[in-house]
């Protein structure tokens, strides 16, 4: 039987590599669309692609599915970042459509909700509209945790090892285990028609407060004392440092995502119908 071919952008990133492995395990051939060639893996081939650039003509040759997970968070210049991420994503999506790729999944973010104030969320939201109008699917993963978690979960794991934890008001997040996100993506692609043109939140339906998250991420699951921290003060301090051009492990924009997180998880009916489930956070 011919194996379906899924192209994954950002395939060497945290989420992208999870998707790549899950698709290979599910008998897909994967085309990694990345700047650098990934390490050799059976059923994985490589085509050079850099977000922001116009995709080479043969990028989507033989490709059935595009999972667009690439995003560049490293550029501090807002105009360049927009051009690279939003403009680049639009070019990629146009190229996929012109090449006749029938199934397109965009990996967005829980920060991308209408009314968001996060730069990251606003940028992702700008791409979402293009995806949805082209009958693609938008996946908004919650805070993805699991082995070797990156991004926000990685940062929170580090904070969890501190003797005292910060407490930012009533901040609470949706969470998703990395294994569920990966297998969920495969299931979604396999039930694509049910999801076309829709936004789905990849997370367990219950929001979890920050202290409980930190306790779960702490080495022995032990709660540490918490100190209320005025988010606005920390935000201002982070912005001041960012204004000097310094690169921080935790950006003011990420803090905004933590303290002003969405309380809406879209598309849960669709996920239930496709039997895509997310485990609750283990205590």
């Amino acid at each position: 039987m011919t194996r379906s071919v899924v192209a994954v952008t950002g395939a060497t990133g945290y989420l992208g590599s999870l998707f790549m492995s899950a698709f290979v395990d599910a008998d897909y051939d994967v085309v990694a669309l990345t700047r650098r060639e990934p390490s050799a893996t059976p059923h994985v081939s490589w085509r050079a692609y850099e977000l922001g650039a116009t995709p080479p003509r043969d990028t989507f040759e033989g490709v059935d599915v595009l999972v667009h997970a690439a995003w560049d968070l490293g550029n501090s210049d807002a105009q360049e970042s927009w051009a690279r991420n939003v403009g680049g994503s639009r070019r990629l999506l146009d190229a996929a459509r012109e090449a006749g790729v029938a199934r397109v999944v965009f990996v967005s973010s829980m920060s991308a909700y209408f009314g968001t104030r996060q730069t990251y969320g606003i940028s992702k939201l700008a791409v979402e509209r293009t995806v949805l109008d082209g009958h693609g699917v938008v996946v908004r993963p919650g805070l993805v945790y699991g082995d070797n978690a990156g991004g926000m979960a990685g940062t929170l794991t580090k904070i969890a090892s501190l003797p005292v934890w910060p407490k930012f008001g009533r901040s609470a997040l949706f969470l998703a285990h990395s294994d569920d996100v990966a297998t969920g993506m495969v299931s979604l692609v396999e039930n694509y028609d049910d999801f076309a043109g829709r936004v789905v939140g990849f997370a367990h339906a219950e929001r979890v407060d920050l202290t409980t998250i930190l306790a779960s991420f702490a080495p022995h699951g032990k709660r540490h004392p918490t100190v209320p921290v005025p988010a606005s003060l920390v935000m201002s301090a982070l912005r001041l440092v960012e204004a000097t051009g310094a690169s921080l492990p935790f950006r003011s924009d990420s803090l905004l995502g933590l303290v002003r997180a969405t309380d809406v998880l879209p598309g849960q009916d669709l996920l239930a119908n496709a039997n895509i489930r997310f485990r609750p956070l283990a205590p």
């Binding site: 807002a78 105009q79 927009w82 009314g115 104030r117 730069t119 606003i122 940028s123 700008a126």
Partner: peptide, 12 residues
């Protein structure tokens, strides 16, 4: 607008 896009878009 290009220079302050995010600030403008924050207001819808």
């Amino acid at each position: 607008y290009t220079a302050h896009r995010i600030d403008v878009r924050r207001h819808g």
